[in-house]
């Protein structure tokens, strides 16, 4: 992916850009708002990482300008933990995702990949498929190797999100935000229990596992051995 990183803090910029390059992405950086907005409008990128507090031009202003232009550029906003309402404001103004510092690099990458691929995914898909697992979004039926699987409503939503982001690492906070629609920090890993229940229905009794745990990061849905 080609990623635009607009961040004025030199250390954070280096840390993110180095990490992304190691994963094989191309990174273009800007350390102020003006250059950032210019690059965002002039060049083509797969995603943009935008800091909220920037010299010369505020991140929120850049976000508004990009979202008002015809450009389809997924934006991941970063901010220092400040006022409670900032996140809501960012998302309302069209940020595709919002991450509060300090964050782990895995969280950043997972979210970046999720928003970058959202555009590539057809919105009117009716069938999600991974190997022998089929998820029918219309009839809400789930089948693995031809066998019907009964899922509760939340389990279905959870599986749908994982399937939509197959081959991508999905973090626990991403699941809480997107499946449960709450932004909060659980004291214990409540998500793990939900995943293990889902595993019991999707993977148990079949010869290969589809839901994998990524240590220190979250989960990934993929075919075994890929």
């Amino acid at each position: 992916m080609k990623i635009l990183l607009v961040e004025d803090d030199v250390k954070t910029q280096k840390f993110i850009s180095k990490g992304l390059k190691e994963l094989g992405h191309r990174v273009v950086t800007a350390d102020n708002g003006q250059d950032g907005l210019f690059l965002a409008l002039e060049e083509e990128f797969d995603a943009m990482i935008l800091d909220r507090m920037l010299p010369k031009l505020e991140g929120i202003h850049i976000l508004k300008t990009i979202k008002n232009s015809k450009k389809e550029l997924p934006v991941l906003m970063l901010s220092a933990l400040g006022e409670v309402a900032h996140r809501v404001e960012g998302l309302n103004l069209g940020a595709d995702d919002y991450l509060v510092k300090p964050f782990s690099f895995t969280e950043l990458v997972a979210r970046l990949e999720a928003i970058a691929r959202r555009g590539a995914m057809a919105a009117d898909e009716t069938m999600l498929i991974l190997g022998d697992l089929q998820l029918n979004l219309l009839s809400r039926q789930v089948k693995r190797a031809g066998k019907d699987i009964e899922l509760q409503s939340r389990e279905f939503q959870l599986l749908e999100y994982l399937m939509r982001h197959k081959n991508q690492v999905v973090t626990r906070t991403m699941l809480l935000e997107n499946v449960w629609d709450y932004h909060f920090d659980p004291q214990t890993n409540v998500i793990d229990v939900h995943i293990s229940r889902l595993r019991g229905k999707i993977d148990k009794g079949f010869n290969s596992e589809l839901i994998h745990t990524v240590r220190g990061a979250g989960y990934i849905m993929k075919l075994d051995g890929t």
Partner: peptide, 12 residues
């Protein structure tokens, strides 16, 4: 979100 956080902490 904050109320959810508070309730979930207590229930946790």
């Amino acid at each position: 979100n904050l109320l959810f956080q508070a309730l979930s902490n207590v229930i946790d």
